[in-house]
């Protein structure tokens, strides 16, 4: 299971991470989020040396959702060296997510 990140540890866990980090912005009531979560877990496990998957609950972390201008979920943003290097919106099948992540993995 991907780790939950909050505003308090976002800098340490995401922005200062040496590895690429995919942040999955989600909410309990979002069905597509529940569909994509296990796919992200699989990707995280298969590419553990290249990318880490973490989750931000937008209900509990509205300031992070606002800061990253989230207007639809699931929204996935990949950070590397503190910068966003890839962005995806909406639940997608694994092969489509892997294509989107090709530059990172």
């Amino acid at each position: 299971m991907a780790k939950n990140v909050t505003a308090a540890d976002f800098t340490a866990e995401v922005l200062n991470s040496e590895k690429a980090v995919l942040v999955d912005f989600w909410a309990e009531w979002c069905r597509p989020c529940h569909m994509v979560a296990p796919i992200l877990d699989e990707i995280g496990a298969e590419y553990a040396d290249k990318i880490e998957i973490v989750k931000v609950n937008v209900d509990e972390q509205p300031q992070l959702a606002a800061e990253y201008q989230i207007t639809g979920i699931p929204a996935m943003k990949v950070f590397k060296g503190g910068k966003i290097v890839a962005e995806m919106v909406g639940a997608k099948p694994k092969h489509a997510l892997l294509e989107d992540l090709a530059g990172v993995l």
């Binding site: 979002c30 597509p32 201008q69 207007t71 639809g72 919106v89």
Partner: peptide, 11 residues
């Protein structure tokens, strides 16, 4: 899409 354009109000 995902930045204000949406096809799913409940989402």
């Amino acid at each position: 899409s995902g930045h204000g354009v949406s096809w799913c109000a409940t989402c």
